[in-house]
Structure formats: structure tokens, C-alpha cells
Design a protein around this nucleic acid. Structure first.
Lengths: 202, 202
DNA sequence: TTAGTGACCATATTGTCAATAAGTCACATT
DNA sequence: AATGTGACTTATTGACAATATGGTCACTAA
């Protein structure tokens, strides 16, 4: 058994998990993924190192959880944009900008998150993959809505359109590419959004 | 003086340069940039290490020369495409494909060139910058010709259009991004070309 | 005067090994 | 039975010595 069954006393499993994640989130942000040790996390929650492994099978798994957390907040931002009832074009454009800003923030502001974001991409961590899948869903939804409302053209197969947009989004979202033009990313995102929107015109 | 003046006897300066470049080209392809030492090159052309520095100020300079060579062959390919008299759309699409194939070739076929290509991008080597500048010129030319012939729309400022296309091209051309989807790059290039062409429709 | 070099220096790279951290497990405590 | 741990093995890291490499210069030979 990886996780202990919850007994009479003591916090439930998920609470322990949450404790660990909270500690990890703090430590990773403060010291970075590499500089944070499992022992640090154990000490932070006042339990032994070994016990951490009852809830997470590896340090990587904790990293993935934090990575997922990161993506969750991004999802919330994008979800809000997608559901605000504006036109599909407008929402798509703002998805571009939001994605760019989020990535910039991760690199500039939260410098210590750099290594975890990097890892996530390089090693194809599942949350990153999942986020891409989710993002594709969002894009597809916007495209469909835009087509339904007559904003967008309908000839191109929807899969191709989505795939193309995801490729373009990658150049905004991808941390590797990003380091090279952080300063202009906001503008670039807008420029790319314009290009995509023109390509969607009926 | 960096380069010796040509005297009565012995090969002229530019021949020595060419010798060095030829040796470097061979060695870099065979062993990679990192594994090739200046001493190796010196031995290959039967001269001393110190003498190399009469023609190139640093190893980096030799790397840049090879990088430039690389770009020259790419330029030739693209130039041929641009001047073949077909429609602007067709040529632009083929520029996308050619760029993708070239980058794939560099990574897959000529595996040892990996590090030099990587360096060129990471450290902003001048030939790479120059190539981007040149490429932008090519793109601008195609856009202008397409606009003149009525193939492309004319409302968007030409600078914005070019910039956007360059950003999209980056995701095909950039080695960092590339490693992750080498297998599908050919298709992706076509998909992106279609998107860009739709965005250019009048 | 010019083609060319050996010997030299400073720095980057690599190898080594002890210290630290990840990850496991039998067992103690409640 | 459930919560929890100390002590252990294996994988990574860090610091430092040894080596290799990039780069310079005074100098020789024709």
C-alpha cells in the first residue's frame, strides 16, 4: 500500500497530502526544486522523511503535483476568459495574451520556479501534457463557438485549425523558446493572435 | 595584424582560411564542435596550433564560419524557391517546408552538428542573426509580390505581417523547440503554412 | 620581412571521492 | 490495524585536484 488507510485518530490521508503539497509549494518557490530536499519538506510538516513516501512515490511525483497546481491556476484564468460571453475572437485573443503573461510571470517573477517548469517540459511530466490537452479543448471550443456564430470560416477541418493554433501557441507558451524574447512576449502574443484571427476570418 | 600578408612563396591567406574551414567542417561534422580541438584542426592541415590564430581570432570565429557555411546552403535552397516564378502562396508554403526539412536534416542526419546549431542560437552567433535578417527579407519580398499580384490582403501593415510570419517560422526553425517533435515537423510546417496563407487571404 | 612554431599561461573541463540526498524496509508505538 | 520512524542502501552532488584546451607571444628560418 502506498498510502495508509485513515484510522480513528490523526489527520486523513488527503490532509497529509495537502500539507506536503503546501510545504513543497512554499519551498519550491523559495529555494527551487533542486535545492529543496525531501528532508526539508519532512521537517516543515514535522514528520519524518520516510513518511513522505507513504503519500508520494518520489520527489518527481511531488514536483508533478506542484506543476499541476501551477496549471490549475492557469486553467482558472483561461476558463474565466472563455466563459465571459464576449465574442470568440476577443476571447481567443485574450487566451493568447494570458498565456504569454503567465509564462513570463513564471520566469521573471517566480524565478525559482524556473527549474520545475523546465523539467516539466523536458521530461514530459504528465501535468504539462494534461494541460496541453486541456488547452486544446479550450481552443477547440472557442473555434466551434466562433464558427457557430459566423465569426470564423468553416471550410478548414476543425482538427487542422486547432492543431495549427496549438502550434502557434507553443511559441508563446514554451519556456525554452521564451527565454530569448521575454521582453517582447506580450506584443508577440498580440501579433500572433492577430495572425491567427485573420486566418480564421470567413 | 591578425592575418599574415602573402609573401613570395606559400599559399595565399584565403587558401589557408579555406583549408582551416574545410578541416573544421569535416571535424565538426564528424566529432561535433565540442569534441574538436584547435590542435586537431592544426594537425589536420599540417600546421601548428598557434598559426590557426593568425586566421581566426577564436574557436568561436571558426564555429561562426561553419555556421555561415551551413546557412549559405540554406540560403541557396530558399533563393531557388523564391525565384522559380510560381505564385507567392506556393513559394511561401515551400519556404516553410524547406526550412523544416533543413532543420530536421541538421538534427537527424548530421547529429554531430547539433551542438554548433545549438550554440549559434543560444549565444546569438552573428551568422544566425544574419540569416534571420535575410530570411525576413525573403518573407517580406514574398509578401510584397503576393500583395502586388492580388493574392494577399493589403490592409495589415507589412511589417506586422512579416513579424508575425517570422514568429511562426521560428517554431519550425528553432532547434530548441524542434527536438520535441522532429517526426511530425514536416506535417506541422505544412499546417502552419496553411494557417499563415489563410491569414493572408484578401 | 613574412611564414611559421614551441613554450607558455589562464581558464575550462574532467575525474575522483567524500558528503549529501533519494528512496526502502523492518519494526516500534499507539 | 493504523500511524509513524531509525537505520539502511543506492543514486546525486559538491569540492577539489589533475588534465586538457583555448589563446598569446617571443622567437626562428627562409
Amino acid at each position: 500500500m502506498l498510502t495508509p488507510h485513515s484510522g480513528q485518530r490523526g489527520p486523513a490521508d488527503h490532509e497529509r497530502r495537502d500539507q506536503i503539497i503546501a510545504a513543497a509549494n512554499e519551498h519550491f518557490r523559495h529555494y527551487g526544486y533542486n535545492k529543496t530536499t525531501i528532508a526539508d519538506l519532512a521537517e516543515a510538516i514535522g514528520l519524518s522523511k520516510a513518511y513522505i513516501y507513504k503519500f508520494f512515490e518520489s520527489k518527481k511525483a511531488i514536483g508533478e503535483a506542484i506543476c499541476a497546481l501551477q496549471h490549475d491556476s492557469m486553467r482558472a484564468v483561461l476558463q474565466a476568459i472563455v466563459e465571459d460571453g464576449k465574442s470568440a475572437s476577443d476571447r481567443l485573443r485574450r487566451v493568447f495574451i494570458a498565456l504569454a503573461r503567465n509564462t513570463v510571470a513564471l520566469f521573471f517573477h517566480d524565478r525559482k520556479m524556473h527549474d520545475i517548469v523546465y523539467f516539466a517540459m523536458e521530461e514530459e511530466w504528465t501535468p504539462a501534457k494534461a494541460f496541453r490537452g486541456w488547452l486544446r479543448g479550450i481552443v477547440e471550443r472557442l473555434i466551434r463557438e466562433g464558427r457557430d456564430s459566423g465569426e470564423f470560416e468553416r471550410k478548414t477541418p476543425i482538427d487542422e485549425t486547432c492543431h495549427a493554433i496549438m502550434l502557434v501557441l507553443q511559441s508563446i507558451h514554451h519556456p525554452l523558446l521564451l527565454e530569448q524574447h521575454l521582453e517582447t512576449l506580450d506584443d508577440d502574443a498580440a501579433t500572433l493572435a492577430n495572425l491567427v484571427l485573420r486566418s480564421l476570418a470567413p
